[in-house]
C-alpha cells in the first residue's frame, strides 16, 4: 500500500488508532505500507506515537530525539489483544492523560472522606469509559468467531481548549454482526445496529444460555456515551459503512467501510469532576428495587 500523506496536516487519536489498525491489517495480509511526503512536524509526532510500526517512510524527515522523550505526558498508540490487560491498560492510559492536564497540586493529599485527589477525580470517568469500550472490543467479536480481534487505543489532551480525545478502534465484526436477529434491531443496517447498541439493556448476550460461559447486561456503551455527554462531549461511533454521533448520523464518505468498531470519545477536562455515575444509569422502576444489606 502506497500512502500519499502530502495533504495530511493533523491527526487526532481517533485517526491515529485507525491508521495503526489499517497498517496492521495490510501487514497481516503480507502487504507492505509505504508513506510518502509526510510533513516533518507530523512525522515526528506520529513516529513518537508509534503509529508507524513496520511502515516505511519515504521522503519524510527522520525522527528527531528519543521516542519516549516525554514518557509521563505521552501515551503511544497501544494495541491490546488480551482481555487480562484491559484494567491495566485503561489505568495507564488515563494516568498518562491526566499527567498532561493542569491540576492544582500534583502532591495533593487524598481527601479524607473519599480517599481521592483531584487527579483521581479527573481520571475516573475516563478510566471507567475505557474499561467498558476495551471490554466490548475484546469480547464481542471473539464470541462471534473473530478470535484474532484486537483493539488500538490512543489519547491526547489539548491544552489550548481543554479538550480530551480518546480513540478506541477494533478490527472485529462490528455491531451488526453481533446484533443480527435482536428484537431491538429494526433494520439490517450498520447504522441501525449502532443505534440499537446504544440503548440500555440491548446486548447480544444478556441471557444466561444453557451452555453460556459469559453474560452481559447491555449497559456499558450506554453509560460510556452518557459519561462523554456529562463531561461536555460526545462519542463518535463508526462501524461498517455508518458513522453516528449525537449531532448526526451518516454513511462514511466515499464508500469507506470499517471492518469492526471505531469509537472516538471527546470531552472537556473542566467537566470531568462533575460526572456522577449514579446519575448515568438507566432508571429502575421503583417496584423493582430490591432490599440489599449495605454497611
Amino acid at each position: 500500500m502506497e500512502v500519499d500523506a502530502s495533504r495530511l496536516v493533523f491527526a487526532d487519536p481517533f485517526g491515529m488508532a485507525l491508521l495503526a489498525a489499517t497498517f496492521h491489517k495490510v501487514r497481516e495480509q503480507n502487504g507492505f505500507v509505504r508513506v510518502h511526503h509526510l510533513n516533518a512536524k507530523l512525522s515526528g509526532y506520529l513516529q513518537r506515537m508509534d503509529v508507524f510500526e513496520g511502515v516505511e517512510l519515504v521522503g519524510c524527515a527522520p525522527m528527531q530525539g528519543q521516542r519516549h522523550d516525554r514518557a509521563d505526558a505521552l501515551m503511544e498508540v497501544t494495541r491490546l489483544e488480551q482481555q487480562s490487560d484491559i484494567g491495566n491498560a485503561a489505568y495507564r492510559l488515563t494516568t498518562a492523560l491526566v499527567g498532561q492536564m493542569p491540576v492544582m497540586n500534583r502532591d495533593e493529599q487524598p481527601d479524607e472522606m473519599s480517599g481521592y485527589t483531584e487527579s483521581d477525580r479527573l481520571a475516573e470517568p475516563i478510566q471507567y469509559a475505557l474499561n467498558e469500550l476495551l471490554e466490548n472490543a475484546l469480547t464481542h467479536a471473539r464470541r462471534a468467531g473473530y478470535i484474532n480481534a484486537c483493539v488500538w487505543l490512543s489519547s491526547q489532551y489539548y491544552p489550548s481548549n481543554g479538550l480530551i480525545r480518546v480513540g478506541v478502534v477494533d478490527n472485529g465484526c462490528g455491531f451488526l454482526a453481533t446484533l443480527r436477529g435482536h428484537t431491538a434491531l429494526h433494520q439490517e443496517t450498520h447504522l441501525a445496529a449502532i443505534l440499537a447498541a446504544l440503548q440500555p439493556r440491548v446486548s447480544c448476550n444478556r441471557d444466561l444460555g444453557l451452555r453460556s460461559d459469559s453474560v452481559n447486561q447491555g449497559v456499558g456503551l450506554t453509560t460510556t456515551r452518557r459519561i462523554a455527554e456529562r463531561a461536555g462531549g460526545r462519542l463518535y461511533i463508526a462501524s461498517g459503512d455508518a458513522i453516528h454521533s449525537d449531532s448526526a448520523s451518516s454513511h462514511l464518505a466515499n464508500g469507506a467501510y470499517w471492518q469492526g468498531v471505531a469509537i472516538a470519545l471527546e470531552c472537556k477536562r473542566q467537566k470531568l469532576p462533575e460526572v456522577r455515575f449514579r446519575d448515568l444509569l438507566p432508571p429502575v422502576e421503583p417496584q423493582l428495587a430490591v432490599r440489599l444489606r449495605f454497611q
Binding site: 447486561q217 449514579r278 444509569l281 428495587a289 430490591v290 440489599l292 444489606r293 454497611q295
Partner: peptide, 27 residues
C-alpha cells in the same frame, strides 16, 4: 442477595449495585 453484605460503598457504587440487583432480579 440476602447473604451478601456490601461494605464501604460510595454513593456511586451503591447506585450501581442497586441497579444491577434490581435489573437481574427482574430478569
Amino acid at each position: 442477595l440476602g447473604r451478601i453484605i456490601f461494605k464501604g460503598c460510595s454513593d456511586d457504587v451503591r447506585a450501581i449495585i442497586e441497579f444491577v440487583a434490581a435489573d437481574r432480579c427482574d430478569q
